[in-house]
């Protein structure tokens, strides 16, 4: 399966990745090769096979509804790029 420039640009947008224009052909080629490799799966009949999402088909564990987390806001925000008054700052989204 061959991906073209538009495909790569669309995927990169969905993944919110800026890709340099000059790099698009190489990504298109690499991704097409990977999809060819992955395509080998399509020859296998899996019509009656239940998908396996987790090795033990485990379900989410439950615990008592008690507060176990401490408030560590300042500590955790110490590694943030920009904060003010306990909030994470990002570029303006509403004019």
């Amino acid at each position: 399966m061959a991906l073209n420039r538009t495909d790569v640009e669309k995927i990169a947008h969905l993944a919110r990745l800026q890709i340099d224009d000059n790099d698009v052909p190489e990504y298109a080629q690499n991704l097409s090769n990977i999809l060819d490799l992955i395509g080998q799966m399509q020859n296998i009949d899996t019509s009656d096979i239940e998908p396996l999402a987790h090795p033990f088909d485990a379900v989410q564990r439950l615990r008592a509804d008690k507060i176990t987390e401490l408030n560590q806001r300042e500590h955790l925000q110490s590694v943030a790029p920009a904060v003010a008054n306990g909030l994470f700052l990002v570029p303006k989204v509403i004019e």
Binding site: V8, I11, A12, L14, A15, L17, Y27, L31, I34, L35, I38, M41, Q42, I44, T46, I49, E50, P51, L52, A53
Partner: peptide, 26 residues
């Protein structure tokens, strides 16, 4: 990230992700 995004994107989920998980069971 792009391979994963593509595989999970609309219309491809069954052909890729579900298929891979079926093979995982095999």
């Amino acid at each position: 990230i792009m391979v994963g995004t593509y595989a999970l994107s609309e219309g491809f989920y069954d052909a890729y992700y579900k298929k891979a998980q079926q093979i995982r069971r095999l």
